[in-house]
């Protein structure tokens, strides 16, 4: 026991010792790689392929930041984190940024001393239930056994929702999405609840997706986005504006196909400012003029990243919904580049 106490303390101390000062940008540039925290594997958001190359919706954000800062979208070291380890990894300095379906909440922002750089996916918690049970609304779920992925905001939302509506339920906590799927299919729980995007991804993997319905109620707001440590505002700005550049690029019609053409100069001053042919936005960030050009070029604009990883043409098949541009009735709204 004593040895493990020593080892544990040493680990904690070593992790704490790694906490760097407020110089993340220069640290990353000196190191030449970006350490980016991602999930241990959630298809569509972040998962390694057979060659060990990571790809996905969250991974694209990491690659865009690496392209902006290091001029190479491939120089990213992906650090898989679980729901439990993600915050310690970030606050200890093991990773420079976390892009892992993390919900922006007050306590995470204020109490845990993190800085959310923006929102790259607006999600909400939903319920999936077999069609044969004949339930059409979450209000009819009183007494149900509910499978929840533990260690997320979902179990708090679930507790709140059932308490608010005076209903009982029996929670079945489950560690990973894969196990939850198995339990749900075996009938060990009546309902499976997680973020609606996760439900869609899970249902797509079933043999007969048509036998399961996702109930219309969305019981929570789950704004997911990349985050960095509190107190290093220069680095926070780099991540925030890289994400904004991806979103603005879609709005302004900059795509990976036409970006080289636009780089030569366009009629639109905002496009020119983003791509560095006009003004000195890059210099203000501590980067060169081409930072946003490289970030967008890496994986395309926000819309392209969405369509390629989780959009309707992929097996996950998510509609844009809330994540459409504000001009299309969605919530994606990048502040002006000026």
């Amino acid at each position: 026991m004593k040895t493990s106490v020593i080892l544990g303390t040493m680990t904690l101390a070593a992790m704490a010792a790694g906490a760097a000062g407020a110089q993340t940008l220069s640290d990353v540039q000196d190191r030449g790689t970006l350490n980016c925290g991602v999930t241990t594997g959630l298809v569509g958001f972040a998962a390694p392929d057979a060659n060990g190359d990571w790809s996905g919706f969250d991974v694209a954000v990491c690659r865009a930041v690496a392209a902006a800062v290091l001029e190479d979208p491939q120089s990213v070291e992906f650090v898989p984190t679980t729901g439990k380890t993600r915050f310690t990894a970030l606050s200890s300095g093991e990773i420079d940024m976390l892009a892992r379906n993390t919900t922006w909440t007050f306590t995470r922002d204020v109490d845990l001393k993190f800085e959310f750089a923006g929102i790259n996916y607006y999600d909400g918690q939903g319920f999936m239930i077999p069609k044969e049970l004949g339930v059409s609304s979450a209000r009819e779920l009183s007494g149900a056994t509910v499978c929840i992925q533990t260690g997320t905001t979902t179990e708090l939302n679930l507790a709140d929702y059932f308490r608010k509506n005076n209903m009982d339920y029996e929670p079945v906590p489950i560690e990973t999405n894969a196990e939850a799927q198995q339990q749900y299919i075996a009938g060990a729980c009546d309902v499976y609840t997680t973020d609606a995007s996760g439900l869609a991804a899970t249902r797509a993997a079933f043999e007969t997706p048509g036998d399961h319905v996702i109930l219309p109620e969305i019981i929570s707001k789950e704004p997911l986005g990349p985050l960095v440590r509190h107190g290093d505002n220069e680095w926070g700005d780099v991540v925030r504006w890289t994400l904004n550049a991806l979103i603005a690029a879609e709005e302004l019609g900059i795509t990976s196909a036409n970006i080289d053409e636009m780089k030569a100069g366009t009629e639109s001053p905002e496009i020119n400012r983003i791509l560095g042919t006009e003004g000195n936005l890059g210099e203000m960030l501590g980067l060169d003029a081409d930072w946003a050009y490289r970030a967008i070029k890496a994986n395309g604009n926000y819309g392209e990243i969405f369509a390629k990883n989780i959009g309707e043409s992929t097996p996950i098949g998510l509609a844009r919904g809330l994540n459409a541009q504000w001009t299309d009735g969605g919530l994606m709204y990048a502040p002006p580049f000026r």
Partner: peptide
């Protein structure tokens, strides 16, 4: 090790605190 941990936590703006034990847990068992 202890002082190193405390110093680094302070540098990161965090502190060891058990106040959270009194807060509502918010989850069901």
């Amino acid at each position: 090790l202890g002082s190193n941990l405390m110093a680094n936590l302070r540098a990161a703006g965090l502190s060891i605190s058990y106040d959270f034990l009194g807060d509502p847990s918010g989850y069901d068992i």
